[in-house]
């Protein structure tokens, strides 16, 4: 499904608002092509795409106009990798073998790499794990660290995995170098779980260079993922 919007001779914010409506109206993946007659408007449309995490490009055409192309990704029913391929499921159970896993697991992680919440698939309910600390529970810190480590180990052994794990505040330490949970979190990522760490928190704790697994996220995404989840697990 592809859409073209002619937003020439329209002043901001109209080109952006019309693009946003077009993206929201789409029922399947496809490209939205927006033609505007000035660079500022093209930058505002690109800003919309970037904010929504969609791939986009802009071309300054010979007629003096700007064509912005946005790849709108919608997700249909997504099979659980462990249900689909028992051989693969067995291999990812062992952390040591995860580095070499490929094939269907690789495909699955591609599928999960962007907002999968738009799908309404009953086979894969949207569960999200939220980690806001580098310890688990209130009380002794050392105990808390032992508990969070076992939490991630136990999570790798579950039949039903979350769609995403969000790390913020001191939780950001867990996805960075020197984290004792790193291997398990990497295993989860290989199994198709999206690993996202809050960018503000990485900055704040000067961890940006040390991030060792998953991607960097923002508050918009952190809120959206939680809002669209049907279960939020917060150890």
């Amino acid at each position: 499904m592809n859409l073209t919007i002619d937003a020439r001779k329209k002043e901001c914010p109209l080109p952006v608002i019309e693009t946003k409506k077009a993206l929201e109206s789409m029922t399947e993946s496809g490209m939205v092509q927006v033609v505007v007659d000035n660079e500022i408007a093209s930058q505002n449309v690109l800003k919309l795409a970037a904010h929504k995490g969609l791939e986009a490009s802009c071309e300054h055409t010979e007629d003096g106009n700007f064509t912005v192309r946005i790849q709108n990704k919608l997700f249909s029913a997504i099979p659980h990798p462990q249900d689909e391929n028992s051989e693969n499921a067995a291999s990812v159970q062992t952390p040591a073998s995860t580095k070499k896993t490929s094939g269907s697991t690789g495909d699955a992680s591609v599928l999960f790499s962007s907002s999968p919440f738009l799908s309404t698939t009953p086979s894969r309910p949207a569960k999200v794990v939220v980690i806001s600390s580098d310890t688990m529970g209130d009380g002794d810190k050392e105990l808390g660290k032992v508990l969070i480590k076992s939490f991630f180990f136990a999570l790798t052994k579950q039949d039903v995995l979350p769609l995403a794990i969000l790390f913020y505040n001191r939780g950001a330490f867990l996805t960075c170098q020197d984290s004792e949970c790193l291997n398990d979190i990497r295993t989860l990522e290989k199994q198709g779980v999206e690993i996202l760490t809050c960018g503000t928190c990485l900055d704040y704790y000067h961890l940006k260079e040390k991030l060792a697994v998953g991607g960097i996220s923002n508050m918009y995404e952190i809120v959206e993922k939680q809002l669209l989840a049907d279960t939020i697990l917060k150890p």
Binding site: C12, P13, I40, N44, K47
Partner: peptide, 8 residues
């Protein structure tokens, strides 16, 4: 996304 050209 009610963004103005001036803002950009």
């Amino acid at each position: 996304f009610y963004l103005t050209a001036g803002g950009q």
